[in-house]
Simulated scan of single mutants.
Amino acid sequence: MLRDWSDIYLIGIAEIDRQHQGFFTAAHRLYEDILDRDGKSAVVEAMAFMREYAEQHFQTEEAFMRQHHYPSLQEHLRLHAGFFRRLDELENDLMIFGPSQALADRALDITQDWLIDHIADEDMLYSLHFRAGAVS
């Protein structure tokens, strides 16, 4: 089920919150393009956009974590790498099998559901670390 952005996903870091909202939009676009099945080119374009958006977003997060000496940075980097491995698998299946409902469902899981879990758990941790340091 597609979920819309909600303020419950805010972590309190304006630039990253803005990017998270954009990530939700990109996840919706990818899901809808796969379901529309207007041909592989639209889906390939949506997946490329998702990859580019994730790369940009993860770079922003990782720079922020380095700047604020986040102690769990290496673990967070592994989570980001895991996201890209799952995206690679999705792209591979798209090239082999083409767009389908099953692929759309996997795209939703890989992008939106992963993002929600990631924001609620991992991103909130570095936000709390940042805010604790800002208060000190």
Rank of each mutant, 00 (worst) to 15 (best):
R51L: 12
L35E: 06
H57D: 00
K40I: 10
L77Q: 06
H76M: 04
E45K: 12
E55M: 10
S72R: 02
L77Y: 00
Q56L: 01
H76L: 04
D36L: 08
V43Y: 03
Y70C: 03
L73E: 00
F49T: 06
A63P: 00
Y70F: 15
L73Q: 01
M65R: 06
M65S: 10
Q59G: 04
A48W: 14
Q59C: 02
H69E: 09
A63G: 10
I34N: 00
E61T: 06
A48H: 15
V44T: 14
R66A: 09
R51A: 12
E61G: 05
L73R: 00
Q56A: 06
D38E: 09
Q56T: 03
F58C: 03
V43R: 03
A48R: 10
G39L: 09
A63Y: 01
G39E: 09
A48L: 15
G39K: 07
H76I: 07
K40Y: 12
E61C: 08
R51Y: 07
R78G: 11
E52C: 08
Q56D: 04
S72Y: 03
M65T: 05
M47C: 09
S41K: 15
S72A: 14
D38N: 08
Q67M: 15
I34L: 14
M50V: 14
M47L: 15
Y53N: 00
H57T: 01
D33F: 08
A54L: 04
H76E: 07
M50Y: 04
L73F: 04
E62A: 05
H76S: 07
H69K: 09
F58T: 02
A46D: 05
H69F: 09
P71D: 15
E55N: 09
A63W: 01
E32S: 07
A42W: 08
V43Q: 06
V44R: 13
R78T: 13
F49V: 04
L35P: 03
D38A: 12
E75Y: 06
S72N: 14
G39T: 12
H57I: 02
Y53E: 02
F64P: 03
T60Q: 03
E55Y: 05
M47D: 04
A54T: 15
S72V: 00
Q74R: 07
H68N: 14
G39C: 05
E45Q: 09
R66C: 12
K40L: 15
T60C: 05
F58I: 02
M50D: 00
A46W: 10
A54Y: 03
F64V: 06
A48G: 15
H68G: 11
G39F: 12
Q74D: 11
E45P: 05
P71Q: 15
A48S: 15
F58G: 01
